[in-house]
């Protein structure tokens, strides 16, 4: 049958008519795939309680988003998967046996104040996940401290060791580099699965979901400042690689600092943003009161993002 005989209804659209195929939903799917190795490692190390925290966090995050879209008379965005990713990332920053009410509170705060209050996905000035995390972390430090929550384990918390016993105590502590990589340390349930997160992060980079400048220079920032301090006094300051393999450094470098809504858009801005975040991480760990400064470092860098965004080239053909 020739075309003219059929009565065809065409889809109208606007140029360009080709598309790279990336959508918000697909990006969320890539995030989920990238986080899966860490999910398995977390369940491997911490068992069913870890699974419970992750499931509850995702559930509450999605329900909160649905609730707020209804209250705000907006079309439902629950299906794009961004809330689920936020929920899972939030769970990654919690101890495996965090009480259920704290998980609910954190997920609710993250989505309501960290995302919907600013108008939804992509409009938030500070990372959605970290808003929720910071609120409960500052309010209930004991429940959010993995070292005080996870008592039935043989692992130790390397950051607590560093903070309260000094860098020399790390030498004769019972952990190995490979052990740390495979998550044999006390820490937040997902954030401590270093190798799994690294694999996931590289997957996101390969898929073009996140920008390599931010991740790479975040890690460089960590290494640089830690190396300088370590050079000054190795007995007092830990080695730079120790900082990479503990706490939530890798999680922040690949999954949190790269959230593009609150990261700069151009190369130079992204490089400076990454360096700032990485440097702040080590500075907070060394001089601050918190053992793991990574999330706070990312939040501070997020707040500086508008200034990094001011670094831009002149428009096409504009001189002066």
């Amino acid at each position: 049958m020739s075309n003219s005989e059929k009565n065809i209804l065409f889809a109208m659209s606007a140029a360009p008519f080709w598309h790279c195929g990336r959508t918000i939903t697909k990006n969320s799917m890539h995030y989920m795939i990238a986080l899966m190795p860490a999910v398995f490692m977390a369940i491997w190390h911490w068992g069913i309680p870890a699974l419970g925290v992750m499931s509850l966090s995702i559930l509450v995050a999605m329900l909160t988003e649905e609730l707020f879209t209804r209250v705000m008379h907006r079309t439902s965005t629950i299906a794009d998967g961004t809330a689920a990713v936020s929920g899972l990332l939030l769970a990654f920053l919690m101890p495996a046996n965090a009480p259920y009410w704290i998980v609910i509170l954190a997920a609710f705060c993250a989505i309501s104040l960290g995302k919907m209050a600013f108008g939804g996905y992509g409009a938030n000035p500070v990372n959605t996940v970290l808003v929720g995390w910071a609120m409960v972390f500052v309010s209930f430090p004991v429940f959010m401290d993995p070292n005080s929550m996870l008592l039935q384990t043989d692992f130790i918390d390397p950051l607590v060791r560093l903070k309260y016993f000094g860098a020399e105590a790390l030498q004769n502590a019972s952990f190995t580099t490979s052990g740390l990589m495979f998550g044999e340390q006390i820490g937040a349930l997902g954030a401590s699965q270093i190798l799994a997160l690294l694999v996931g992060g590289l997957y996101l980079l390969a898929r073009g979901v996140i920008r390599w400048e931010i991740s790479l220079f975040f890690l460089i920032g960590v290494l640089l400042v830690a190396a300088i301090l370590n050079e000054v006094d190795p007995s007092k300051y830990a080695s730079p690689f120790f900082h990479l393999m503990t706490g939530s450094t890798i999680l922040c470098a690949f999954f949190l600092a790269t959230e593009f809504a609150c990261a700069p858009d151009r190369s130079l801005g992204m490089i400076l943003f990454g360096l700032t975040g990485g440097a702040l991480l080590v500075i907070i760990r060394t001089y601050g009161v918190y053992t793991d400064g990574a999330p706070f470092a990312v939040m501070l860098a997020n707040l500086l993002c508008p200034y990094f965004d001011m670094i831009k080239p002149k428009p096409f053909g504009v001189k002066k």
């Binding site: 990336r22 918000i24 996905y121 992509g122 409009a123 593009f260 809504a261 700069p264 858009d265 151009r266």
Partner: peptide
């Protein structure tokens, strides 16, 4: 959503 791909 401020992803910045167009800017790049």
């Amino acid at each position: 959503v401020n992803c910045g791909a167009c800017v790049q």
